[in-house]
Nucleic acid binder design. Structure first.
Lengths: 248, 248
DNA sequence: CGTAGTCTTGATCCACATCAATTCGTGTGG
DNA sequence: CCACACGAATTGATGTGGATCAAGACTACG
């Protein structure tokens, strides 16, 4: 397995899997060339910390592949996940020097980094970047607010069902995009990470997953592979029947 | 008391109390003039609903004065506040036709509205607006994430202390800006609204406020007026000693 | 005064946390 | 190939913080 920075990756933006969804999505050819000059890649192994809250962070970045998490902690160790970073998601805040959250690689990840200073300067001149970043930030804000409803008002069972819905929904296109029924996916998170996501303990997560299995809402093969025979049923269990947790 | 739209307010942007903090903060004179042409004011009384989630919303707006809330609800009536709108905060999302949340006036409020279409068109041409909106959205996202930590991991007492800290902090400049000790303010929210903010029941809110009073952390005069003899003590009670809940 | 809304306080209950073993799965070294 | 070790997950027993149910108390207002 690759160690951090041992195999400097090279990738041209034209071939980039997130070219059309990341912060650069709206950029035209000239702008992409300019970005190409200031970008570099870093990879992290599953479990590694990308940055600690409070540390100086001299870059911003897009997640190219893999999954990372944003977490906050209280002094006594209680921790809450506040963001789940999927490919194309953006890390770091232009105009702020320190990291506000812990960023941790959940799987092996590849990040496309931009040194902060040149990126900020370019953002000033390049409305396409600011516009896209605004869109993405508004989407994240909506997701955060949906998540607040989950944290504040849902039961443990509803929380688990909501999380499964979100992951299922995200992986759905990878399967047979059409049918709502019989979706299958791998959980990218440990029970503990799920607990931190949902504001529960890992024991409660485990119990509720067992309960959903017992009730036939989900089928497990191993600890991590899940199939959902009836997606509508799962959405019902999640509490917010309409759309399963994410705004369109 | 004024009814909705009965007394159309007129205010020039030059005299506007939120001129330097709202979405128009970065606009130069020309841009402000252009905004002045497409803006109009609406006022709402305490308790009135500004929009319902799902309704078509043909404007975006800034809160000029007063306080409003953003809430989400599950079908069975459980509700969670997901945003607290103070003067200068922005309502509505460019590029989306329906409202995502219920917006309710908590006090009498005055809003500076822009018809969505012209505003969106202007935003395309006017980086100053998009840039400012991006800043504001990033701030809101940080606040939402701090709030997620509160909802997911804090105890009822810590939640109440956190809320009081936030309100105290916001009102602090209005008092004698210097000292950390002896802060005084009015709660702008009912017990029920606080409960919806914090993911608690109103009974628990009431009990915890009584407990903080009993323990000398706060002093109440009437139901709504609070003074805090020792702000540091309150911050300790909030759990995150450093800054009381809001990033700088 | 009476009525309605807001708030407080008490008694009880229960969902989830906590504490404590097992079990499962995977990799490692003899 | 087995023994064992270690982390991840399950499952059980018990405790508790906050919800729920239910009276009252305070305030404002007609």
């Amino acid at each position: 397995m690759a160690h951090d920075d041992v195999h400097p990756v090279s990738l041209t933006c034209g071939d980039c899997p997130i070219r059309h969804r990341a912060v650069c999505a709206r950029c035209d050819v000239d702008e992409i060339e300019e970005l190409e000059d200031i970008k570099y890649y870093r990879s992290f192994e599953a479990g590694q910390t990308v940055v600690w809250a409070g540390d100086k962070m001299d870059f911003v970045a897009s997640v190219v592949s893999g999954i990372a998490t944003l977490t906050q902690t209280l002094e006594d160790g209680r921790t809450q996940m506040v963001g789940l970073l999927l490919p194309s998601d953006f890390v770091g805040r232009p105009g702020r020097s320190g990291a506000a959250y812990n960023v941790t690689a959940t799987t092996n990840i590849l990040m496309c980094c931009f040194r902060k200073k040149p990126f900020e300067e370019m953002m000033e001149r390049t409305p396409h970047i600011a516009q896209r970043l605004l869109q993405m930030t508004l989407d994240e804000l909506d997701a955060a607010r949906e998540w607040m409803l989950l944290l504040g008002r849902k039961t443990a069972r509803e929380k688990i069902a909501s999380l499964l819905s979100i992951v299922a929904r995200r992986d759905a296109p990878l399967n047979h995009a059409a049918q709502t029924s019989e979706v299958t996916f791998d959980l990218p998170l440990t029970r503990e990470a799920m607990a931190d996501y949902l504001g529960l303990t890992l024991e409660t997560v485990s119990r509720q997953i067992s309960a959903l299995k017992r009730d036939g809402v989900i089928v497990l093969e191993g600890k991590r592979h899940v199939s959902v025979p009836d997606m509508d049923r799962l959405l019902m269990e999640a509490g917010d029947d309409s759309d399963g947790g994410l705004l369109i």
